[in-house]
Nucleic acid binder design. Structure first.
Lengths: 352, 352
DNA sequence: TTTTCATATGAGACCGGTCTCAATTGTGGA
DNA sequence: TCCACAATTGAGACCGGTCTCATATGAAAA
């Protein structure tokens, strides 16, 4: 039932026998350690070739304690943001001969815990995590191997972290909106809130989400806009309910004249909803979104975006983690990458 | 230098000692095999809990020969097509408690070979590959573990394969174009050709690319369009040269009145190039592309696409592979998933 | 020539699990 | 009362590598 073929793999001992040397000697040349004479080395190599020897990385990892792979836990690989970041990570990893085991958390803490447990059991040398919640991080604290955080910071966790300047980016984007005269500005995010928001930013469990909202609120405050907190809409992902929520928002009497979207997936849904409602961008409503996704430059009008260096984000965490793996013991670094705003045509003056 | 902490992990023996039973007995309850009395089981479990025992999956894999992970080699995770497929794969894998080790080939055979070698050395239980070339498959033939092919078929390789009906899809798309009166139709693909094309489809090393081109040519032939082969343009990825190539194509006297694009990345570049040249869709040029990417529905006009069941593609291969892992020994299956064409607004009548 | 020491090799323990096999115990049937 | 047999447990081999330690060899130093 479960004995497919029992692939009788060639082992060091087999090679040693073939080359008429001891297992230890064969292992030395095959493993590339210790010291062996040229004669013997050639013989062993020849035997290995003849037998088509392939090292068993698992066995090697067993004794060395080092598996040569890192685990990456992201919210959703399907999201272009993450897939690009993963690309950055795996490019760097490959350069160091390390490979990547990928896991999706679906932004769910339990799934995240589970993924980490499995990855750790597989003896990954290090972990890169995009923590789903900053409120529940006990499982992250007790991780024994090097850990690095991607895109989301955790103040209580002193580990290498790479994020973007979310707050400042949101602030600048909001300013563009307020300077165009907008006063009814909505912030729309896919993140869900456990419990009520009521303006308490500390209740927001994801640093990225919190920072952006703080920047947004600050931007509103600068323009003397009151009650910006009430214009923050959570849970606007790609679901039915989210769609209904957007429709309601766009059709209400208090319809915002400008929207700041927290990611490109949300923005795409918003864009569609706006069109369905017969509203025009930017005449009826202005739109800015985080992430310079493919589609934002080809719509009519093209969308003004906050361009995050996503690939670099992945590249940087991977570099930080790998440096750590190599024994670097500098204090944890928190890198904040700058963002730029690409102004396109989706922001217009407010009618009001 | 490389002794970070030497994490003194708790082993079965430790638990056994704590529970005052033999290593074998502790292993039985911890590993969930054999037969143990309730009393002893409870004691061992208690000891394990007290010591915070975590199994070492690597060691387990060593003896069982089964690693509980599969390797996936795709062209480029950054491409939405692949990231969605990978999502499908990993969702299925997770359900079976299997995890996924991801590798990028960058559509390069050497990189692919290397990735497979590494994955195999890591003792993956099975492999899912999107072969970069159908001409060089020796390395695939000699794979000893279960192998499944994603998106691209290899006639010479009798393994589980899931593809879409590329040829028929291309044929139907071409018909839409010819029925609209178009006669100068171009097919644009990112694939590169080693050597000259000159109409010899057998020279095309990727089944997907070949099938699509065959469908395209058949569609042209049906409409009595001669020399369709000359209107096939290779190497149109996201590079500088590709951009120049597109510009040249769009500005030539022989400018096509309709284009069929082989994937959404190519189509996006085309879309941009078309706009840069001041051409209008669909008045000046019609466009259809493979893959219902995000952006295709939000452009003005929205783009007619060949919708491939990408998530299902990933889901299916994963299911096939996992079934195989469980000991299924039915003859290899070749599943061809149907595509549908989503007609939007990017096809207009030919001016000619 | 004898001592010294670096180099080359072999023997075997070890990593942390799984699994085979034998020993021990308890129970129902003859 | 005695025995076959099932259930439970322990001892130890094994997986395929790495690595320590002891030994052997040969050249350089005394």
């Amino acid at each position: 039932m479960k004995r497919p073929s029992k692939a009788p793999s060639v082992t060091v001992s087999d090679v040693a026998r073939e080359a008429k040397v001891s297992k230890a000697t064969a292992a030395r040349v095959l493993g590339g350690y210790g010291t062996v004479s040229e004669m013997v080395r050639a013989a062993v190599l020849e035997a290995a070739r003849a037998l088509d020897y392939r090292p068993n990385e698992l066995a090697r990892s067993m004794t060395t304690g080092r598996s040569g792979s890192i685990g990456v836990v992201v919210g959703d690989i399907e999201n272009p943001f993450f897939s690009l970041a993963v690309r950055g990570i795996s490019d760097v990893a490959r350069l160091s001969g390390i490979n990547v085991i990928l896991a999706n958390s679906g932004e769910d803490v339990e799934a995240e815990k589970n993924a980490i447990r499995v990855l750790l059991a597989k003896q990954v040398d290090g972990l890169i995590v995009t923590p789903a919640q900053s409120s529940e991080i006990a499982h992250l604290k007790e991780i024994a191997c090097p850990l690095a955080l991607l895109d989301r910071a955790l103040p209580e966790l002193a580990v290498d972290t790479v994020t973007v300047d979310d707050r400042n980016a949101a602030l600048r984007a909001t300013r563009i909106l307020t300077e165009a005269g907008h006063r009814r500005i909505a912030y729309v995010t896919a993140a869900v809130l456990s419990g009520d928001f009521r303006g308490a930013a500390s209740r927001i469990n994801t640093s990225t989400v919190r920072e952006r909202i703080l920047g947004f609120i600050e931007g509103c405050r600068e323009a003397d806009i009151e009650g910006a907190e009430r214009n923050i809409h959570f849970g606007s992902g790609r679901s039915e309910s989210a769609h209904a929520l957007m429709q309601r928002l766009l059709k209400s009497a208090e319809r915002p004249t400008a929207i700041l979207a927290s990611d490109s997936v949300v923005a795409l849904e918003l864009f569609k909803a706006i069109r369905e409602c017969g509203l025009r961008i930017p005449q009826d409503i202005s739109l800015i979104t985080f992430h310079d996704a493919d589609w934002t430059s080809v719509t009519t009008p093209p969308i003004t975006v906050i361009d995050q260096p996503v690939y670099a984000l992945g590249k940087s965490v991977a570099e930080l983690l790998i440096r750590r793996l190599k024994g670097d013991d500098r204090p944890p670094e928190r890198i904040v990458l700058p963002t730029t705003i690409i102004e396109r045509m989706s922001v217009g003056p407010s009618e009001a």
